[in-house]
Design a protein around this nucleic acid. Structure first.
Lengths: 300, 300
DNA sequence: GCTGATCCATAGGTAATTTCAATACATGTC
DNA sequence: GACATGTATTGAAATTACCTATGGATCAGC
């Protein structure tokens, strides 16, 4: 087995690539220029390739250097992840954790779970970010988020998920609506019914569409949030489907709207937690999920 | 940023996990036991977690240790890959390269390209492995192969491919066969025709099936290789489709069988080279592919 | 074409780190 | 309680990493 480079040497290579000059790179990593110079030279000796083209006005990476750079970056992030993961294993759910939540979950689930989470993990600093599923997905992949609360299914490469609980859909309409008379509805009752939905991009829109394929979607109006949506129902523009979680959180309180469940088989969505496969905080995401799951299951 | 561990420390951790004892692990990495002991201790200090449970009969990893181990393995392989990739960049297509080839390509393509490859890259040591697509895929993922010659499409996560050339299918039958009269065939001419195919697992079987959906596959007989297949045609069991590459390599020479092309649009398969995304030898696989492509395109 | 500025390479000395040999300590075994 | 089998500690030696000082090359401006 040929000799391995040092992480330090790789770090120097990153700095060199970033600053385009031995001297400036040396400053950036707090060593002198000769030190960095020697380290790069030894790295080249180990790899048997010239990585850097030395010029009068700085340094440029050779193609081999570029290739090594990409891999060096990977090695460094993997090493950093190791440290973070190990430290987290020693004291789980500590420090900053960046959690994404979709807009149809955040306002209804977070008030219910955050107090307990805060109490149970006082050292945890949750940074919350509310956004659409697709953007949360991107953020997870780019390591800008550690975990995300989303609606399942959330099939995506490199993403792992755990189910936290079911969230059935309820039919919501004006009291004067014909269907308001029935204590519960069948999916087929929606046939021809004018339905209001969230605007495109919300996964709740897709799930609701799947649940009420019989309905007639009003594509001329689309709401930007569930709060807007119920206002539109109240204004007489049509009926809609709401997640029970939102109703339980008081979304339609004092609005004088009628809410009806569906007969089994109930339609709805599943709430889950997602994280990037191999993320340094995968285990913590799983743990956080368990806590939230425990908070969801008993009441409803 | 907290301090990073050394690759050496991670290597020691791997050895410790493998041998279950400080002393034996130390022997394995050619240092003394105190050295390894101190290194692990410092690693634990850096990570802030106890990784190893020291017992009277050796050492066991704690859960945190196991987690660190998995990541350490990743860091080490990434670092090793960096070295290999960089060395390969300096002197491409040198040393051992493990190349998988599917059985319906190997005997016909390799004799045509290997001499030139050998001549062009005298220092290259090609280790060839002939196997079915699925097993080559597994081997690529498990790093037991560096590249593979397969039939496209070869859609798979973590695998990248390049097209090397087209390989059209030819109709092969006995001279007395009714279709032998026609100089060329349409795909629809195969309607009701009893066709022989390779046994399950060969991708050529699937591609041929797709190409001649009109035909009537003889599922009572399936060949284990193209050589067997033509013998079965000769024995009067039916007709078949052969890749032009195999015919060009002399598969039916001296067999007194009739071979007919299809009218455009020609049916066939594409030959490609595949490698694991991020493999240390990805660039070399690409280069090797270019050479083979150059050898395939001019003649036919 | 000289001058100064900028940048990388080299040299030699020093501090820090790594490693080793020797030994101490802990724990099960007979 | 001696012994075998482990790991931890210690202090010295070798190695390595780093710094200061200096040299040489290239380019810009005059």
């Amino acid at each position: 087995m040929s000799q391995l480079p040092t992480l330090r040497q790789l770090q120097f290579l990153l700095a060199l690539a970033e600053h385009g000059s031995f001297s400036r790179a040396a400053d950036a990593v707090f060593v002198t220029q000769p030190t960095l110079s020697a380290a790069i030279k030894e790295l080249e000796a180990i790899l048997g390739v010239v990585l850097v083209e030395r010029g009068a006005r700085g340094a440029t990476l050779t193609p081999a250097g570029e290739a090594a750079l990409t891999r060096a970056r990977r090695v460094m992030t993997e090493a950093e992840d190791l440290v973070i993961a190990a430290q987290a294993a020693g004291e789980p759910l500590c420090g900053p954790l960046r959690l994404g939540v979709i807009p149809t979950i955040a306002p209804f689930l977070l008030p219910r779970v955050l107090p307990t989470v805060r109490e149970q993990f006082p050292k945890l600093k949750l940074y919350l970010r509310e956004d659409l599923t697709q953007r949360l997905y991107d953020a997870l992949l780019e390591r800008r988020l550690d975990a995300a609360l989303v609606a399942l299914p959330f099939e995506a490469p490199m993403i792992e998920t755990h189910v936290l609980g079911a969230d059935e859909f309820l039919f919501c309409c004006e009291p004067a609506h014909p269907l308001a008379q029935k204590p519960s509805l069948k999916s087929s009752d929606l046939a021809g019914e004018p339905l209001l939905l969230l605007e495109d991009g919300h996964c709740l829109r897709d799930h609701a569409l799947a649940a009420c394929s019989a309905g007639m979607v009003r594509s001329d109006f689309a709401a930007t949030s569930l709060h807007t949506l119920v206002q539109m129902v109240k204004a007489g523009l049509g009926a809609t489907l709401l997640p029970r979680m939102a109703v339980a959180a008081g979304l339609v309180d004092r609005l004088d709207l009628t809410v009806r469940p569906f007969d089994p088989p109930v339609v709805g969505r599943e709430i889950g937690i997602a994280w990037r496969r191999g993320s340094a905080r995968a285990e913590e995401a799983r743990q956080l999920g368990e806590v939230i799951q425990g908070l969801l299951t008993p009441p409803q």
